[in-house]
Amino acid sequence: MMTLTLIGIGCGDPGQLTRAAIEAINAADLVLIPRKGSAKSDLADLRRTICADVLTNDATRIAEFDLPVRDAGETEYRKGVDDWHDAVAATWSQTIENHLGSDGKAALLIWGDPSLYDSSLRIARRLVPLPKIEVVPGITSIQALCAAHALPLNDIGEPFLVTTGRRLREGGWPQGVDTVVVMLDGGTAFQSLDPKGLHIWWGAYLGMADQIILSGALAEVGPRIVTARREARERHGWIMDSYILKRRP
């Protein structure tokens, strides 16, 4: 039976790999490296670097493939994502079949951790035939962001909420919490909030050589983040960022 191992690799720093992740990479017959276009070639390069650093099993092969692009013109968000996941699953299945056949161990290096705002587990369950699925956890961008700012995520005895930029923009500040973690923000959804009493801890390219972090009162730091984000995106052609907002008296 085919086994597919989803290996959390952290946020870009090879030093964030756990021993379990290194062992799983070396236990694989095939490591899959997705390519997301020239604008995000850094992500494939970092996966290649990780393999070059830790792969000691000469029998492990590496196969690269191009990821399907989600149709941004799809009017229904959920259907667009669902169709995209079907296309990605078909690409995974075909790549595994081409390079490994129907038996063996394939591995995918997952940015951050497969359990948090990553669809790899949902996509893996669409593969035909369905493989045995294993998961090796990794350091999430939330952990990396808190570490970069030396920030405890939750206040004493208080909850926090993890959400997306789209939901923050559409729904405003969530009820019942004073700490919000925002991921997958294609823009700067914090600009839709009243900044009074809000503080922000923002980070981009966390764990990478080009890491950028900014923090402070949202009213003061927000415009600086907007500028830094725009300049970084123009420089790299892509950006991966997240932030924490806390409501203070």
Rank of each mutant, 00 (worst) to 15 (best):
D103E: 15
S215C: 11
D178K: 12
I110F: 05
M208R: 05
I25D: 00
E97T: 15
L214P: 02
L130N: 12
G104E: 04
I123H: 03
G15C: 05
A72I: 13
E134A: 10
A144I: 00
D86S: 12
G176P: 08
I200R: 09
T91V: 11
W201Y: 13
V69S: 13
I7N: 00
A150Y: 05
I110W: 01
E76T: 13
L145S: 08
L206G: 08
V226M: 13
A27W: 01
S41T: 11
K196H: 15
R47H: 00
P152E: 10
L55V: 06
E64M: 06
D29W: 01
P131I: 06
D185Y: 01
A87Q: 11
R61L: 14
T5G: 02
C146M: 03
Q211M: 13
I123G: 03
L6N: 03
F65R: 05
K196G: 15
D66R: 08
P114T: 07
L108G: 07
G73N: 11
D42G: 06
Y243W: 09
N154R: 11
P114R: 04
G15N: 05
G165Y: 00
N98F: 10
G216R: 07
T91L: 08
D13R: 06
L193V: 08
P195M: 04
G237V: 10
D42S: 07
Y117G: 07
A59T: 10
I62L: 04
E170I: 00
G172D: 07
I25Q: 03
E97K: 15
A148R: 12
V226K: 08
G216S: 08
A148G: 06
C11A: 10
A144L: 02
R78Q: 14
Y243F: 14
I133A: 07
N26H: 06
T91N: 09
D185A: 02
P131K: 04
L168V: 05
R229W: 10
P129K: 07
R126D: 07
I212Y: 06
